[in-house]
Amino acid sequence: MNALIDTLIYALSLYWWIIIASAIFSWLYAFNVVNSRNQFVSNIGNVLYRLTEPALRPIRRFMPDLGGVDISPIIVLLIIFFLQRFLDSTVRDILTGF
């Protein structure tokens, strides 16, 4: 059972980095640091968008308008952090019998 918990924690860590990469890419794209007409750059942006949008969209739906500032990635990162700690401490302790 420890292997399953470790795999879930690793998957959450991987998604953590995907969200950070998506946020950085969106800044680079917004400030025209990357060439948006380049096919490779466009494909990277599309992949990052498709990977992160299912997690970010429900949070954006409930967030108030902050005038162009999107804090939904920060909220998702906090949720991932909580899930990692919950899996590592509480669930592992319950399954191993303290």
Rank of each mutant, 00 (worst) to 15 (best):
R50Q: 11
G67F: 12
S13G: 15
S26W: 12
R60Y: 10
V33R: 02
R37T: 06
A3S: 15
D65L: 08
F40S: 05
S72I: 05
L28G: 06
T7N: 11
L12P: 04
G97H: 13
L83I: 07
A11L: 15
N38H: 04
R60Q: 14
S89H: 13
D88A: 03
L87I: 03
T90D: 06
R92M: 07
F31A: 00
G68S: 10
R92L: 07
D88M: 01
W17P: 02
R37E: 03
S13H: 12
D88G: 03
I20C: 07
I19Q: 02
P64H: 05
N35Q: 11
S26D: 05
A30F: 09
F62I: 15
M63H: 04
A23K: 03
Y29K: 13
S26R: 14
L4W: 14
G67N: 13
V76T: 13
V33E: 00
I24E: 09
D93E: 07
V69I: 15
T96R: 07
R60K: 05
Y10P: 01
T90N: 00
A3L: 12
S36W: 09
I44A: 07
L28K: 06
S13D: 15
R57K: 15
L48K: 14
L77D: 04
Q39N: 08
L28D: 03
L4C: 00
I20R: 14
A23S: 12
L56H: 06
V33A: 10
I79S: 06
V33S: 00
Q84Y: 02
R61S: 13
D6S: 13
I74H: 00
F98Q: 11
I79E: 04
Q39F: 12
V69D: 06
V34W: 06
Q84N: 04
L83E: 01
L87Y: 06
N2I: 14
D6C: 13
N2R: 15
V41M: 14
W27C: 00
I19D: 01
I94N: 03
D70W: 04
F81V: 00
I9C: 07
T96M: 13
P73H: 03
L14I: 10
L12T: 06
V76W: 01
R92I: 07
L95F: 11
L12R: 03
F62L: 14
E53N: 09
T90H: 05
P73C: 10
L83F: 08
P54L: 12
I19N: 01
N43G: 00
R85Y: 04
P54K: 12
F86E: 07
A11S: 08
A30K: 11
R60D: 12
I75E: 02
L87R: 01
I59F: 04
Q84H: 09
I20A: 13
V34C: 00
P58I: 08
R37L: 06
I75S: 03
G68E: 11
R50N: 14
A23Y: 05
L48Y: 15
